[in-house]
Computed example of a mutant assay.
Amino acid sequence: MKKTAMILALAALGLASQAMAQQSPWQVRARIVNIDPADKSDPVGGVGAANQITVSNKTIPEVDISYFFTPNLAAELILTYPQKHKVYLSGTNIGTFKHLPPTLTLQYHFTPAAQISPYVGAGVNFTRIGSVKLLNGLGDLENNSFGFALQAGVDFKLDKNWSINLDVKKVQIRSDVFVSGAKVSTVKVDPVLVGVGLGYRF
C-alpha cells in the first residue's frame, strides 16, 4: 500500500508539474505591422481651409510581451523602436518626424485552450515624438501623446508553445502642429495597425 501510495503521489506530482509547465504565464510575439494613419487634421489656415496635414503609411517590426493572470485574462506590452514618418501638407512633403509608441493593453482570450483562440483588448498608448524636421526648421510637433487603444486578434496554435498570430489595433495618437511657435493645426494620426507574426508560450 505504501509503495502504491508513493507511486500515485509521484505520478500526481509529475502531472501537476507538467500542467504548470504547460500553463506558463509568459508569451512573446514578433510581428510585422502595417501602420495606416487616419490622415485627418484641423484645417491649416482656419475654418473652411482645404489644407490638410497627413502622415505616411509604414510597415514596421514589433515585439510584444504578454503575461496571463488567468487562462483568459492577460496584459500585453507592445514595443518597437523609433519609427520615421513623412509629413505632407495637401500632398506636398514638408518634412519628417520620429515616434516611439509603446502600448499596454488588457486582453480577454475567449478560448485559451483551443487551437484557434480569439481575443479582444483595450488599453493606453503613450507616444514620444521627436527628431521633428518640418518646413526647414520652422515647423514643430507636440512632443508627447496619450491616448486609448483597442485591439482584436486570434492565435492559431501550432503546438503547445508556438502559434501564428493575427492582430488589429486602433490607436489614438494626436499632436498639435506649430509654425514659428504658433499653433496652426492638430494632426490626428490615429492609425490602424494590422499585424501578423509568430508567438511562443513558455
Results as ranks from 00 to 15, higher is better:
Ser163Arg: 15
Leu135Tyr: 05
Asn125Ser: 05
Trp162Tyr: 15
Ser41Asn: 06
Val44Asn: 10
Ile65Leu: 15
Ser24Lys: 00
Leu77His: 12
Lys86Asp: 07
Pro43Asp: 01
Pro61Lys: 14
Gly121Ile: 02
Phe110Gly: 03
Ala122Trp: 00
Tyr108Leu: 02
Gly45Ala: 02
Gly95His: 10
Val28Asn: 12
Ala38Arg: 15
Asp64Phe: 01
Leu79Met: 13
Lys84Ser: 03
Pro43Phe: 01
Gln151Ala: 12
Leu104Ser: 10
Leu158Cys: 08
Phe146Ser: 13
Thr111His: 07
Ile35Thr: 08
Gln107Pro: 01
Gln22Ala: 08
Lys98His: 09
Lys40Asp: 14
Val87Ile: 02
Val55Phe: 00
Ala50Asn: 10
Phe146Asp: 13
Leu158His: 08
Leu106Met: 12
Tyr67Ser: 07
Phe148Asp: 09
Gly95Gln: 01
Tyr88Glu: 07
Phe97Ser: 08
Gly45Phe: 03
Ile32Leu: 13
Leu150Lys: 10
Asp140Ser: 10
Ala75Pro: 06
Thr103Asn: 05
Phe146Glu: 14
Ser66Leu: 13
His85Cys: 01
Phe148Trp: 14
Ser66Phe: 06
Phe146Ile: 12
Val132Asp: 07
Leu73Tyr: 14
Ser90Ala: 05
Pro37Asp: 04
Asp159His: 15
Glu76Pro: 00
Gln52Pro: 03
Arg31Ala: 03
Leu150Asn: 09
Leu158Tyr: 11
Ala149Lys: 09
Asn161Ala: 11
Ile32Thr: 10
Asn136Pro: 09
Gly130Met: 12
Leu135His: 05
Pro25Ser: 10
Glu62His: 13
Pro102Thr: 04
Pro61Asp: 08
Asn136Gly: 01
Asp140Tyr: 01
Glu76Leu: 08
Gly137Thr: 00
Val33Ala: 15
Tyr88Gln: 04
Gly121Gln: 14
Lys86Arg: 00
Lys40Trp: 10
Arg128Tyr: 13
Arg31Tyr: 09
Ser24Arg: 03
Ser131Gln: 15
Pro118Cys: 00
Ser117Trp: 06
His109Asn: 10
Pro43Trp: 00
Leu104Arg: 15
Lys133Arg: 13
Ile164Val: 14
Asn34Ser: 13
His109Gly: 03
